[in-house]
Design a protein around this nucleic acid. Structure first.
Lengths: 257, 257
DNA sequence: CGCGTTGTTGATCACGTTCAACGAATGTGG
DNA sequence: CCACATTCGTTGAACGTGATCAACAACGCG
């Protein structure tokens, strides 16, 4: 995740020109730029993305996107949340009624369609496939962390982990602590954490009472001490100290390439 | 999953010669055969596999292997179970104390070490990377199904899904129904389903009382009507009707290659 | 036979769900 | 401008499911 920060370092450009997108300076888009321009897309809340038969990739530029799944009786589970900088590898070969990608807030992203690209010798492009593997592999790792969360953490732990994770991923550090604006509703949070909206609201109140966070509004909160918040969850969010992990991956990748 | 069956069809050979393994006739091993022989490994119950810095792949030939994760206080969660025919893509860049691969029963598998292979131009091998991507992507899909299970299914539903899934994956069809020998303990099952061993045992008794399965011993059971069992879980196991899904993937892969 | 491990069952309790009511914020039409 | 409807978030009360602690049975093994 957060690829734009680490992939190409800093180039100072950042020009948000028409058609071009800043986040596409990440490694994936950089690889694909030579093979054709990615397409920019804007989504409203609730809109869905589909990749039925051809492989597509989405790099989130702004907003939140959820990897969703529903059961026959309507129960919904958000498998994963992707925010600005994340690359979404969609599920393939599903009809879209059980699993889909959905924007939880107004979202902009750039779409890379690999399936319809018959003009270039995509199949021979080892660097591209290697990058695709890396993204899918990272996604599996992120899924597994959230799976452990749902399997073994109680409500309080899940919520504290969520609040800390959101701070790392979309918060900004201020003098008073981490300031976060949640781009999703209580129901979305509940579906992500495998809880009920009422339970989420109740635990938010308990977290507030324990002075772990301060709520400025239902959607805005402040984390005065993020270490204290993380200590309440026996699991570190996948994005907190991930810098060293990404170095390790780069090590074998470098050796292989 | 179950790649050996679908990848190369049937060639009738099946020679389990020394060093060579039947399951390695699957697509992945077939791709790698040209680049060097895979290594055969035998594991006892509880033994762990590690891939710290270099990328390794394991194709399970026999037994069960678990993708495990533990918290600081000892709580364990089995993220995924891999049985004969499955390809395990290990997590990278983790220290091994939080996440690891473990054999839950005596297991044989063949190991493919891609990181130490400096002699061949691995980095340029598009077909290999494409296959790696496909495996990682399939793994992510399997994780997501289990994640929904843990997030939204109650105990009864989880257990019924598990019993049906095991029947599909390691059971054999007889005249009296599907016959399954469980290669894992109640504690392992509990850690897979996010429950307690006592709860698993209790629900097994309820399932038995409802005549959905017949237990011949604590480890052996018979499913007279697998459709009835599956109806108790509002989610189909990732291996049941997966044939069409694998075709779809082949479709775009074919187009890309 | 004693011993340790594994699986089962019981009693009690806590956590999260369900159903319900209510307040706050927002938008609409008279 | 106000009445009204709608949506979202919060809080309360009752309930049910699964966890915890405990005892005990079944089994393998020295």
């Amino acid at each position: 995740m957060r690829q734009a920060d680490t992939a190409l370092g800093q180039n100072g450009q950042g020009g948000e020109a028409n058609g071009d997108c800043r986040s596409c300076e990440a490694r994936l888009c950089d690889l694909l730029r030579a093979r054709g321009a990615p397409r920019r897309r804007l989504l409203g809340r609730g809109e869905r993305l589909s990749a039925l038969t051809c492989l597509k990739l989405w790099t989130v530029l702004d907003g939140v996107v959820a990897f969703c799944s529903t059961l026959a009786d309507g129960r919904r589970q958000v498998v994963y949340l992707s925010v600005a900088g994340d690359v979404v590898v969609p599920p393939l070969g599903v009809d879209g009624t059980e699993v889909w990608i959905e924007a939880l807030a107004p979202t902009s992203l750039c779409e890379l369609d690999l399936g319809s690209r018959t003009d270039s010798p995509l199949g021979q492009d080892a660097a591209l496939w290697a990058e695709l593997f890396r993204n899918a592999h990272e996604q599996a790792k992120a899924f597994s962390v959230h799976l452990v969360t749902l399997g073994r953490l109680d409500g309080m732990e899940r919520v504290c982990l969520f609040l800390a994770e959101m701070a790392w991923r979309i918060g900004c550090k201020t003098a008073a602590g981490w300031r976060v604006r949640l781009p999703l509703s209580r129901e979305d949070i509940a579906d992500y954490l495998g809880l009920n909206p009422e339970t989420v609201s109740r635990i938010f109140s308990r977290v507030k009472k324990a002075k772990l966070v301060t709520f400025l509004s239902p959607t805005d909160y402040l984390v005065p001490d993020i270490q204290a918040l993380q200590r309440r969850a026996p699991l570190s969010p996948p994005n907190a100290p991930a810098k060293e992990q990404r170095r390790d991956i780069a090590a074998w990748e470098l050796r292989a390439l």
